[in-house]
Amino acid sequence: MMDGFAGRIGEIRKSRSARNFYLPFILFLKSKTGLVSMLILLFYIVIAVFAPQIAPYNPLQQNLSHSLLPPSLSHLMGTDDLGRDVFSRVVFAIRIDLEIAFISVSIAYVIGVLAGIVAGYYGKIADNAIMRVMDVFLAFPSLIFAIAISVILGTGFLSIIVAITVTSIPLFSRVARSTVLSTKNELYVTAAVSQGASKTHILFRHILPPSIAPTLVLYALGLGGAINVAAALSFLGVGIHPPTPELGAMISEGLNYVLSGQWWLSVMPGLFIVLIVIATNMMGDTIREVNDVSLRR
């Protein structure tokens, strides 16, 4: 008898929480902007994963007799000054930029959200210590801070990742902390405390889950931001080094040819940055709207 009753409560709770949990995702995919942005992101991921199969040429193969050819059927986006196929280079550049974005934003997400909920939940000294450090990180204009970090660490793939991670952590922890401040006074948290649940249990079972949705917005935005920063760093010469193709570095390499009319060297990679950043911004907007709706229900 007891068992059946408790089981039914558990079932109801499960179905309700399941509905609440999936609702934002369903709403997200039902909205036009959500679907479109998701498809664009998938398109980029496919390009990144199957880069060797998609690229018609070797992105590093020089062919000086075919240099600076305008876009045509054999070279969809033309060739650069060294006769390399711009389309193949863009494909491989997308691969490296996506790698940078996913790795750095994911690390920043985990560290940032954990620091944020710890600061928000434990309060007092932990809060002050963590948030003052974050304030200092936020006090730098992010691109300049990223430049300083990657110059010091020596340019390259790893230092870009560190630079982007360090500059995005504070954003995640701020938002995570602010959600914790409102959830930690909820009845269910008080209930858990009165049942004698340990602090770590409450932190991970009751405090962490509600702060995931709001920080997901930042995750989506962060992906686009990371690609933007990676491209800017490489454009300035502190990121990925030639001859490895990277979208921002490609824009900078083509800069000298823009004024003489060979626009495709820079414009083609630029368009691919804009498209992915638009997609992540649309995703962020949609997640925000969807969260509002699902919270209101």
Binding site: L255, S266, V267, V274
Partner: peptide, 20 residues
């Protein structure tokens, strides 16, 4: 949306191509 998504150095480049 375009404005927040466009890297400033790429926008500058387009401006130069079009207006110069």
């Amino acid at each position: 949306l375009l404005g927040i998504s466009m890297p400033v150095f790429f926008l500058d480049l387009l401006l130069i191509i079009v207006f110069f």
